[in-house]
Design a binder for these strands. Structure first.
Lengths: 255, 255
DNA sequence: TCGAATTCTCGTAGGGTATACGACAATTCA
DNA sequence: TGAATTGTCGTATACCCTACGAGAATTCGA
């Protein structure tokens, strides 16, 4: 009885949109064959940029088709001439910001040390999440296969190819690093996002739950937590844990 | 001009609900003082279990207040006498399934090797995500502070306390491990969920996007990906990367 | 035995979401 | 000067959460 939905209707159209600014010169037809018909008042980039702007400023929910149309001064349904669906629009927004990361391309200068090269990936990815907190709310299991996503994969693989691992090991290591970095950066962004949208800091949130320790917490059932608490062990932050884990991971990768 | 919303209205009521089956004997009033008034036709556990069941079988969207009410044979608004809001209900559902993990408590037998003890956490957490794929759609940055969540933290800290690290290091290591394991298990579940709800396997999804390689992919811009591809390096899976990363992390923690 | 107090039930209404359909407007070309 | 083409967008449908308030059921005190 499960719903049978097609997910994305037209992969070819979505690909064409994702790569709209990277047309291969080999394409036989001219870039744009304007003929008869009413002139469009917008273009795809307008819609994508407006979506990113609204999501940045007022949250992903504000980037609804209706809100977007109001922002652009057109009717809601007008957007559907530029973008097949909300889902595809989100793909375009995500690939756009993935492509904003300043990662050295093939032939461009980069640090000699491979760990510093990984650090570039880490810093740029985290900065991207900080600029666009809504990214943390978007699933990455079927990412947009556009120029932005491919540039990220290409860069990390190019870094690890210099280590002399086998091809399979290289790919495995790249997967492990992206998973770790992207997940941690996403969690950090999500935390900030929650603080912003609820108007309540995480500290205030915990303070509100003081009753937990006074009324419900059972020391006998939680001896380890109690020990860490009394030894002042809770000083470490999520960011400490991130650095620690990434360093361990890179230690293990280094041949 | 950002919305000022309180997030959760009554932390004390939410705590009481989360710990409803773990009342401390020190509470002065009797456990339940039934007096005047109409008798309830349900209880909180009924609602929570129905929510989990619907989300398991038909996805998190099916666990709407309306759908839940239909399932239980009551009016939608009736649910609000048991649960303050949808948000709190989700907290209750999450803490319930967190508590389903079979993690040895204080004093209960466990393997001698600490890495095997971490393995228990990994296996149980991954199994939990597999049973309840919708967990991957729920944010964990402000988790339910109930018995289920606390049991998980307690277990992992108790494992690492035996290693002789400093308290801060112990907490940092525990954070790194939970972040890594929970994120990876969540991604895996999300992948399955997408396959189920779209009715399309990930392989089929990639096959649909064959045009990427034929039409848009530029070998000169992606030499590393091309190299890995020709060397057959893409055989490694997300699960390989997970094991690899976790092992490296544990290597680094071991004193 | 009969209000009063208490607690549970739930219909309605309001404000949000995405998008299928179809009528209409604008533009170019034969 | 039609015909063909393409862009615009109002309306309608089917969901979502939950504030409000009227009514039903139950117990207790007098």
């Amino acid at each position: 009885m499960s719903e049978r939905r097609s997910g994305e209707g037209q992969p070819d159209r979505t690909l064409a949109l994702l790569w709209r600014n990277h047309r291969q010169p080999s394409a036989d037809g001219p870039v744009r064959a304007r003929g008869a018909g009413r002139r469009p008042s917008l273009n795809v980039d307008d819609v994508v940029q407006a979506g990113i702007g609204l999501a940045d400023d007022h949250g992903l929910a504000a980037a609804s088709m209706g809100g977007l149309a109001k922002e652009l001064g057109v009717g809601t349904m007008t957007l559907y001439t530029y973008v097949p669906s909300k889902e595809e629009l989100l793909d375009l927004m995500v690939d756009q910001v993935l492509g904003e990361r300043r990662l050295p391309g093939p032939g461009e200068p980069r640090p000699a040390d491979w760990r510093e090269q990984v650090e570039i990936y880490s810093v740029e990815t985290r900065a991207m999440f900080q600029r666009h907190l809504w990214l943390s709310q978007v699933s990455t299991v079927r990412p947009p296969v556009g120029p932005g996503m491919l540039a990220g994969r290409e860069y990390l693989l190019s870094v690890l190819l210099g280590l002399g691992l086998t091809p399979v090991e290289t790919n495995t290591a790249a997967l492990a690093i992206t998973t770790y970095v992207d997940s941690a950066a996403g969690l950090e962004a999500e935390s900030l996002l929650v603080e912003r949208t609820t108007g309540q800091s995480n500290d205030a949130w915990w303070y509100e739950r003081n009753d937990l320790w006074e009324t419900y917490f059972d020391v006998d059932r939680h001896p380890a937590m109690t020990t860490i608490w009394h030894a002042n062990g809770y000083k470490s932050t999520a960011h400490d844990a991130y650095r620690y884990g990434l360093d361990r991971l890179l230690d293990g990768i280094q041949p």
